[in-house]
Write a protein that binds this DNA or RNA. Structure first.
Lengths: 124, 124
DNA sequence: AAATTATTTCAATAACTATTGAAATATCTC
DNA sequence: GAGATATTTCAATAGTTATTGAAATAATTT
C-alpha cells in the first residue's frame, strides 16, 4: 500500500460513524450486511449512511453488491491489513529497536545548577 | 487503547502534512528533532507546524521538550503500537478466518435465467 | 401497474480544519 | 540589556466534511 491509499484509508476510518460502520462490517464477516441493517444497528439516517459508505468505498475499505432491493456492504480485509502493514512499516514492528525506552544516562553530577529548563522532561 | 483514543490517533494521522511529520519523527528515533528541522525538511511554515504538532500531541502521538530555544518533538512509539493493536483487534490478525476468500459455491445450474442483477459481483 | 420497501441523489447548511500574516514569548549571544 | 533566533499565539479566511430534508431511482409484492 502506498502513501496516498494509506492516507485515504486513515481519513475514512477517522470518523466516528465510519469507524463504527467499518467495525460492524468487520464483525459481519465476508458475507457483509445490508445497508438497512447497518442503519438499524447504528441508528443512522439512510442518506447519511450512503454518504459514509461512499467514503469507505472510495478508500477501498468496503465493497457493495446488490441483493434484491438491498445493498450488501462488506469489509475488505485486504485493505485493512494493507493499512496495518503500512503503519507497521516505519514503526516498532518494522524497527523494534526504536521501541525500547531511552536508557537514562548515568550523568556525572554537575557542580553548578544547570540553566533553568535547558533540558526538561517531555510534556504531553 | 480505547475507541476514543484510536479515533483521535487516526484523525491525527489522516492528514497529509501530519502523516509526513509523524513519519519523519519516527525516522528520527527516540531523540526526536527540533521543530525547525522538521520545518526545513518538510518546507512548512513554523506556525502551521505548531498547529499540526498540537494535534499530534493531543492525540498522544508525539512528545515535546524544550532544549534551549528549540522545541524537540519526538514520536511516541507506544501510542502508534497501541493504534496498530486496536486496528488489528477486529481485523484479520485478530480473526484470521475472516481473511480467507469466500469459497465459491459450486451451485447447481439453474434451468431458468436468474432475475437480472439479483446477485451481482461486488463493485468497487 | 400501483403500492411498498430499500437505497441513493441532490441542494442547503452548520461545523470543523488547515493555512496565512502579524504580533508575542522565550532563550541565547554579544 | 539590545539584538538575534526559535517557536508559539491569535485572528481572519478559504476549503472541506457531516448532516438534514425532500425528491428520485430500483426492485419487489400485490
Amino acid at each position: 500500500m502506498k502513501r496516498p491509499d494509506a492516507l485515504a484509508a486513515l481519513a475514512a476510518l477517522a470518523q466516528d460513524n465510519r469507524l463504527d460502520i467499518f467495525r460492524l462490517l468487520v464483525e459481519a464477516g465476508r458475507a457483509g450486511m445490508p445497508a438497512g441493517a447497518v442503519a438499524d444497528a447504528l441508528d443512522l439516517a439512510p442518506n447519511t449512511l450512503t454518504f459514509h459508505f461512499d467514503r469507505l468505498r472510495d478508500a477501498g475499505l468496503v465493497t457493495v453488491r446488490r441483493d434484491g432491493r438491498s445493498m450488501i456492504y462488506a469489509a475488505r480485509y485486504e485493505s485493512m491489513n494493507a493499512l496495518i502493514a503500512f503503519l507497521t512499516e516505519n514503526c516498532c514492528r518494522g524497527r523494534p529497536e526504536q521501541c525500547l525506552p531511552v536508557k537514562k544516562e548515568n550523568s556525572p553530577r554537575k557542580t553548578r545548577k544547570p540553566h533553568r529548563a535547558q533540558i526538561a522532561e517531555p510534556v504531553s
